[in-house]
Amino acid sequence: MNLVGIEGFGPRVAFYIGDIAVTETVTVTWFIMLVLFIFSFLVTRNLKREATGVQLVVETIVRTINNLTKQNMGEKNAAFAPYVGTLMLLIGISNIIGLFGLRPPTADLNTTMCLSILTFVLTQFFGVKSKGLGGYAKGFLEPIPFLLPLNIIGELANPVSLGFRLFGNIVAGVIIMTLLYSALGSFTQLLLGLTVPLLQAGIPAVLHIYFDVFAGLLQSFIFTMLTMVFISGAME
């Protein structure tokens, strides 16, 4: 993929469609969506009654997501499991895609804020659907009407904190790893006199495990858990 760089830190332009610039964020997100689609198609086209191999792994993941949804949102809201699972997989893969040399889409504030706004819209929609417009609006007057402005501000702050939390954690890892690779490349030339960045091989692996795998999957879990808490809380 021929990437055209832009000034400053952030996703670069991957290609143009006419006058429209398509960034790394969009391109990598499309790639992740395609991978998920192909994987889902392949593992479900020939299902067997007795699960083995990949089917067994997939069924375990689906069962875990179903149980997680029921535990946090209740049996009556078990239908949210497909959305919860899709959100967790999309964010999880987006966070660890840096292991393959690609920029995580979640290191772009546009992506994280879109996901958090989607959670916000679903929260308001299902809150109104569950309680009715009057009943849901009445909740902003509790415990006393005087707190109405604070309750509204608190509700509007949820998507902002949700989006910035995910973005901040992921982009921090990207920045740290970028600076580390740059420093190791310079040290290789200064200490060993080599133009090949030899020190970049192996040394960053430990930090990749933390920032890309541990922190990435943890942030995916946190975002999904908060989504379930916000939606189920609005419906109660």
Rank of each mutant, 00 (worst) to 15 (best):
F9C: 03
F9K: 04
G10Q: 08
P11Q: 14
R12C: 00
R12K: 15
R12T: 08
R12E: 11
R12D: 14
R12M: 13
A14W: 03
A14M: 14
A14Q: 09
F15Q: 01
Y16T: 01
Y16V: 02
Y16C: 01
G18I: 12
G18C: 07
D19E: 11
D19T: 11
D19L: 12
I20W: 02
I20T: 12
I20M: 13
A21T: 01
A21M: 02
V22L: 06
V22G: 13
V22A: 15
V22C: 01
V22H: 11
T23G: 00
T23Y: 15
T23H: 02
E24W: 13
E24I: 10
T25G: 12
V26Y: 11
V26H: 13
T27P: 00
V28K: 06
V28W: 09
T29F: 13
W30H: 01
W30S: 09
W30M: 10
F31D: 03
F31Y: 06
F31S: 07
I32T: 08
M33N: 09
L34S: 09
L34M: 11
L34K: 03
V35W: 08
L36Y: 04
F37K: 03
F37T: 05
F37N: 04
F37C: 10
F37M: 10
I38L: 15
I38K: 05
F39S: 10
F39L: 09
F39W: 07
S40L: 09
F41Y: 06
F41C: 04
L42T: 03
L42P: 02
T44S: 14
T44Y: 09
R45L: 08
R45I: 06
R45E: 05
N46M: 04
N46Q: 07
L47M: 14
L47E: 07
L47I: 09
L47F: 06
K48L: 01
K48Y: 03
K48W: 01
R49V: 01
R49N: 00
E50L: 07
E50N: 04
A51L: 14
T52Y: 08
T52K: 13
V54E: 01
Q55Y: 02
Q55P: 07
L56M: 05
V57G: 03
